[in-house]
Amino acid sequence: MCGATTGGVSLEGVDVTKESVIQGVVTRGEQPVGNAYVRLLDRTGEFTAEVPTSVTGQFRFFAAPGEWTLRTLAPRADVVDRRVVAQQGSIAEVNVSI
């Protein structure tokens, strides 16, 4: 994908120094999962945002600094929860296997 950074689609036009980015790829075996949904839950477990994965299995959130949980839902798969810490000005990469 043109301009892609590792694990994510292009961040061109986004001032990453101001953002606390969480991004990654959902895979089943070696294959990216393009029809999964990734939910971002805050430190109390409350829903904050949700995105469908791209055809290449990728997802991204612009969070705030702190602890978050990624909850991944996909057809014919169990729900997968992954903890992640976001920091302003950096990109937290989380790869999810279902």
Binding site: T44, T48, E50, A64
Partner: peptide
């Protein structure tokens, strides 16, 4: 979301 309500975020986190 609670973080938008409190003023810690201005938009949904996606």
């Amino acid at each position: 979301s609670p973080d938008e309500y409190a003023g810690r975020l201005l938009a949904p986190a996606h």
